[in-house]
Amino acid sequence: MAILEVMVVGSTTRRPLRADARRNYERIVVAAEETFTAQGTDASLEEIARRAGVGSATLHRHFPSRRSLLEVVFRDRAEALCSRAREHARGSDPGTALFSWLRDFNAYAATSRGLVGSLLRDGRDADLLEEDDGCAAMITAAADELLQRARRAGTVRAGVRAEDLLALVGAVSLVTEEDDDGTRAGRLLDIAIAGVRSHPCEGGTALPESS
């Protein structure tokens, strides 16, 4: 997981952290990911500090508010997904790159459903997912770049949009929320991918336009 060497809290850019402070910062972010995922965005900050092995004062020194901690957790995961998209694009043919990345995103959705779901249900801080320069925009752009390459290679059906693919993964995550090992989520995604692929016998049949 990539951890920021330079922290941005609000509009203030801080100096690079000392080694001990950087370790504390990294431990807090890891503990926050685990705790928010398991318990939702209302999880106790004291519990996060305990898991990280730091005091509450240390946590608040790095993250003055719950919002500032959530921003780092979401952006870190979004940036990791975007990095995976670039890796797939460099190392695989366009179709394989797109579908492999969708499986990465499916795994992310499965492990983050508590975190994402609590934002969507409660509405608090939901703009972390929706703002123009936020995590959703980053992930959509990464998906669209892979999709455009796959479309030019003729490996996906015409009319498929990046937003459609992300919505499919979101739907799979929702209906498999109670599953533990992700097997059903992977199977459902494979079914969805089969419907998105371009098959020679279909003669490039396009999806119907939405009204």
Rank of each mutant, 00 (worst) to 15 (best):
R187H: 07
A31G: 02
N106G: 15
Q148S: 02
V30P: 00
V175Y: 11
E34G: 04
A142R: 05
A38W: 07
S44G: 09
M138V: 01
A167W: 14
A137V: 01
G170P: 01
E33F: 00
V6D: 08
A78S: 10
A89D: 11
R184F: 08
Y108T: 10
D42G: 14
A43L: 06
V9W: 04
G186S: 06
A141V: 04
I193D: 02
R67M: 05
R157G: 02
G53E: 12
A49H: 06
L120D: 08
E177F: 15
E5W: 12
A142Q: 05
L81Y: 09
A153M: 04
N106Y: 08
V73W: 04
H199K: 08
D181H: 02
V30R: 10
L174T: 14
A89C: 06
R50W: 09
L17S: 05
L69Q: 06
L4D: 15
A31F: 04
A192Q: 06
E79P: 00
S210W: 04
S198M: 05
R84S: 13
D127Y: 09
T205G: 01
R84Y: 06
E33R: 13
S44T: 05
R51P: 01
G134C: 09
R157D: 03
A110R: 14
A110H: 15
R67D: 10
L98A: 04
E47W: 08
D76G: 14
A19E: 15
A192W: 01
E178K: 14
D180N: 07
C201K: 10
R75I: 00
R22W: 12
S56I: 03
L45C: 05
A43E: 04
R51I: 00
R84K: 14
L115C: 08
V160R: 09
L189R: 09
H88Q: 14
V9G: 00
I28C: 08
D127S: 10
E5I: 13
R187W: 05
G134N: 13
R18L: 12
L59P: 04
G203K: 12
E33H: 12
D190I: 00
D125S: 11
R197M: 02
C201H: 15
S92E: 15
S83K: 11
L207A: 01
R184P: 01
R103L: 02
A136H: 13
E26A: 13
H88W: 14
F74T: 01
G203N: 12
D144V: 12
S83E: 13
V169E: 08
R67G: 01
S44L: 06
E202H: 07
D20K: 15
A21S: 14
N24V: 14
G95N: 01
H88S: 05
I193G: 00
E131G: 00
R23D: 15
A109C: 12
A162W: 03
A142H: 05
A19I: 13
D104S: 10
G114M: 11
I48M: 10
D179W: 07
T176Y: 13
A185M: 07
A89K: 13
A78D: 02
V73K: 06
Q39K: 12
D122S: 15
A97V: 07
R152F: 06
V54I: 06
L81S: 12
D20T: 13
A80M: 15
S68G: 02
A126R: 14
T140I: 00
A107M: 09
Y108M: 10
Q148M: 02
